[in-house]
């Protein structure tokens, strides 16, 4: 009886260790999907930083951010994935496109999209990538993520942790967003008022224009 139990536990131990030893040469389906989407994401990111057409850079950025949302889904972080789609793909890229159009970006190829220190930047980036990849692979060579079971980042789990443990940073973040909104409005308004005062000074009342500019200059 005890011998059989010992044998059973031993067999169980061997099967669990056999299940625990993951192989590099036998990737799971999730890993293959992650790798393929990661290749698409990385390629889109590289095209984003190297293309000479500015609007195309913004559109390739959509592909890169959407690929990252799929990666979050594969990591079972659903809420972050949908927040990524909503905020990045929905608003940030639209803001960037508005910015490109408001600064009169050229539609076609612009030959001076890249700076003169491109090769220095490439060297720095390749060196940093080599160092980071080496360190990360060496550090987490024997670490596996357990993706089975309940999702680690569902809306319920994320909301519970956010509103139980992270309430104070959450409220501070809302104040920060309000400050950023007010700051953006103030920056835009000030530039427009100053431009109006600089281009079309009213002949009847020459007083307020310079005084307003002086107050802005001293601010």
């Amino acid at each position: 009886m005890t011998l059989a139990a010992a044998a059973a536990t031993a067999a169980h131990a061997t099967t669990t260790t056999a299940a625990e030893t993951h192989g590099f040469l036998s990737p799971t389906g999730v890993e293959i999907a992650f790798l393929l989407v990661g290749l698409v994401t990385l390629g889109a990111a590289v095209v984003t930083v190297t293309t000479r057409q500015l609007v195309h850079a913004a559109l390739w950025l959509v592909v890169a951010l959407g690929g990252l949302a799929v990666e979050y889904l594969l990591l079972t972080a659903e809420f972050i994935a949908w927040v990524q789609v909503l905020i990045y793909v929905g608003s940030v890229v639209v803001l960037l496109l508005f910015g490109l159009m408001l600064t009169r970006a050229p539609i076609g190829r612009s030959p001076d999209a890249d700076s003169g220190n491109r090769w220095v930047a490439l060297g720095v980036a390749v060196t940093a990538a080599a160092a980071l990849v080496w360190v990360v692979v060496d550090a987490f060579r024997t670490t596996w993520i357990d993706l089975d079971g309940a999702p680690a980042g569902s809306t319920e789990v994320t909301g519970a942790s956010l509103f139980q443990h992270w309430v104070l940073p959450f409220e501070a973040l809302s104040v920060l967003l309000l400050a950023a909104l007010v700051g953006a409005i103030v920056l835009s308004r000030k530039a427009k008022a100053e431009r109006a005062a600089a281009t079309a000074p009213t002949p009847g009342t020459p007083g307020p224009g310079p005084t307003r500019r002086e107050t802005e200059g001293t601010r």
């Binding site: 990661g38 994401t41 980071l132 990849v133 990360v136």
Partner: peptide, 17 residues
Amino acid sequence: MHLAYPAVLSALLFCTG
């Protein structure tokens, strides 16, 4: 999933940026 996959992808994306 091996942890190196997202870590390496993150490092490469950071260096692209």
